[in-house]
Design a protein around this nucleic acid. Structure first.
Lengths: 249, 249
DNA sequence: AAGTGGTCTAGACCACCGT
DNA sequence: CGGTGGTCTAGACCACTTT
């Protein structure tokens, strides 16, 4: 099958480069779950033949998918659909460090999980119909018995049907690992908006700090490999013992 | 000149791939100022011949330099050493947005510029000998007459000799644009550590807010293309009308 | 028309992994 | 040893810009 729109094909003059089309095709197979996490892709020569393009073009597409962390390549073994690792979920998508700059290994406890109809804000952020069903999960992270961060995550029920999580016990898996393992949803992007705000009485009680203590408030939207917004999250961080780290390059 | 360490050269078995060596060579010429901002690089065939490698290898090295924003390529015209644009300085390296998410176009005023010997903290962060001379610049950014962010930047005098800036007038150029235009220092990376903190009396006075108002405090280190740390900066942001935005992917 | 960067191909060889 | 990904080359052709 080599029915690509060649860039030099006069009948479709605006076609994207071949390698970009190949990237989209492979991205689609991964996002659709056709190739699940851990799956071994066909070898590069096989892909080249199947798609009717050269080895070099396949490699250029795979290079891009690798940069986006959708695949992993192991020399001598093959190319695999990337699994959402706890490492990446916790360190890349949760840029919170302790005062020494080390990645913190907190305990996370689920406080509550509710099914709620999407309000105006949630339906707009998550691009849902008003009143669509969502889950709302509240988690509290602690370090050495001291709570330091609360978050409240809202997820469309349509994306995560029958979502469940043990309450009031320590959570073993990161949320993004669950998304992928249980629902085949691979997180590829988060956009976070930060501000400083004093602790409300409720937050002060949960985080065991004085009312009005300055907190770092984060509001996050998260996209999956298919380009859908799959969660909306607010977090409140007590920055007396922790920091938020951002690298720009 | 093709005296590279080939990966398959038995005398230097641990050599890096050719394209990585080419990238380092070109990066070095840019970082050393041999090829200044705006300079037109030799064409790809010329580079390939000069370095004794193939077109494809040169292109792979240039691809990497382009991703790092060190060069810009214009089809039909050539490849140029990237100028630090006000755009990039203000939007990429200053991820502050207004409440609508738009990049804000603030006015910046220099409050003070002092020459100070590096204290313990500064000399450690900037990797300087204790007591080495540094400049300390304080700037205040405002939007529609209302101040919202103060920053205090410390720079090694050895990197920026005779640094000058007009005081108490509006600054026309971003700092990173000055670094490059006046000193050939190209900023490629910043690492920022964030926390929330209440406004001190001094900050409250400068930002015209109530004492104790929660502020977003940023501490930044910045690297240039040669791998040197070229500044240390602390910033205090009033988040009532502005936000800090971070994209993870 | 000539020169630039951008795409695509075909093929050789290397490095690594398993049998 | 054969199969995998990784590197490197040589060359053709396209798209864009300037002369």
């Amino acid at each position: 099958m080599s029915d690509f729109a060649r860039p030099n094909d006069s009948s479709r003059p605006d076609a994207r480069p071949l390698y970009a089309q190949v990237e989209s095709i492979l991205n689609g197979r991964i996002a659709a779950g056709e190739w699940p996490p851990g799956f071994a892709l066909p070898s590069e020569p096989e892909l080249a033949q199947e798609l009717g393009v050269s080895h070099g073009t396949v490699r250029k597409a795979l290079d891009a998918l690798e940069r986006r962390h959708l695949i992993e390549r192991r020399q001598g073994k093959g190319t695999f659909v990337a699994r959402q690792t706890s490492e990446r979920a916790r360190f890349h998508f949760l840029p919170i460090r302790d005062l020494e700059g080390h990645q913190t290994e907190p305990t996370a406890v689920a406080l509550s999980l509710d099914t709620v109809p999407a309000g105006e804000a949630a339906s707009q952020v998550l691009q849902l119909a008003a009143g669509a069903s969502t889950y709302r999960l509240r988690r509290l992270r602690s370090k050495e018995g001291t709570p330091f961060m609360l978050d409240e995550t809202t997820m469309p029920a349509a994306v995560f049907p029958d979502f469940e999580v043990p309450l009031n016990g320590q959570l073993t898996d990161e949320l993004y690992v669950m998304y992928q393992r249980r629902y085949g949803v691979t997180v590829v992007r988060s956009e976070e908006v930060l501000r400083a705000e004093g602790a409300t009485p409720e937050l002060a009680g949960i985080l065991k700090i004085a009312e009005g203590t300055p907190l770092l408030v984060m509001e996050r939207r998260t996209w999956d490999a298919a380009g859908r917004i799959v969660e909306w999250r607010s977090s409140w961080l007590d920055t007396t013992r922790h920091r938020y780290v951002n690298v720009m390059e």
